[in-house]
């Protein structure tokens, strides 16, 4: 039985259903749509598993899912050496989001990472603690700032409403995903001009850790083949 992980909520789920149906594959949720399970019309031996998009990376890397749909931002954040654990099969063309660093718009002296680094030093001298950046993308942010040589900051965990973190006094800057930038502007933030950490979109991943029996392999190949052609 092939186990396919699908985001369980909201627009991402709807768009995933639509993307599959455009390729002749109809995902069917179990009759009670309170139940987080389902199947594919006309293809036996595929079980749909509805999960939070942020849990799909873990399940793929543990081999408990054969396939899964989620953003490559969460894959790269949650999985060390992700390319040894999962393989991207197809980018789905929705769920676009850029992981960026944003700072208050009134910081007119700051435009680049160079500025951010200089401001971190100034801030630490003046305030006695390291400049706080709120994010849920701890690893991606840390690696990015290490590579680009920004020092004297600290990461503050923020699992939601991150754009409000500065206004609410929790941080001096944020790292978060954005698509239009409207929420950032509404929260008096602007994006660092060279602060793009990652471009993300919804992607179908295959687990490199899951076992595929001969039969499962056949179903998997059929599925991948069907998905590569739009009806």
């Amino acid at each position: 039985m092939i186990r396919l992980g699908i985001p369980s909520k909201g627009r991402l789920m709807g768009q995933t259903f639509h993307w599959f149906s455009e390729r002749g594959i109809n995902l069917v949720r179990s009759e009670s749509d309170r139940e987080y399970a389902g199947h594919i019309e006309g293809i036996k031996n595929v079980q749909l598993i509805f999960l939070s998009a942020s849990e799909i990376p873990r399940e793929l890397s543990a081999g408990r899912l054969h396939f899964g749909v989620t953003g490559n931002d969460v894959i790269q954040e949650k999985l060390v050496r992700f390319n040894q654990l999962v393989e991207p099969i197809s980018e789905l063309g929705f769920g676009f989001a850029d992981l960026i660093i944003a700072i208050p718009s009134f910081w007119v002296d700051v435009d680049t990472l160079d500025d951010l680094d200089a401001v971190s030093a100034q801030f630490r001298d003046n305030h006695g603690y390291r400049l706080r950046i709120a994010t849920k993308y701890h690893r991606l942010l840390r690696e990015f700032l290490m590579q680009t040589g920004v020092a004297d900051y600290q990461i503050v965990d923020s699992q939601g409403a991150t754009e409000g973190a500065v206004k609410n006094g929790l941080a001096e800057a944020i790292a978060d995903i954005t698509s239009t930038g409207n929420t950032l502007r509404a929260n008096h933030l602007k994006i660092l001009s060279d602060g793009l950490i990652l471009k993300s979109q919804a992607t179908l991943f295959k687990s490199l850790m899951a076992e595929f029996s001969q039969e499962e392999n056949q179903v998997a190949n059929l599925l991948v083949k069907k998905l590569s052609t739009k009806d």
Binding site: P104, F106, W107, V108, F123, K167, G169
Partner: peptide
């Protein structure tokens, strides 16, 4: 730049004096 600071809402712990200092 000193002039345009006022166009934005002042948020967070880093203050206007620090920005002017850095400018």
């Amino acid at each position: 730049y000193n002039k345009i600071i006022d166009k934005f809402e002042i948020i967070g712990s880093r203050n206007v004096r620090e920005i002017k200092e850095r400018l």
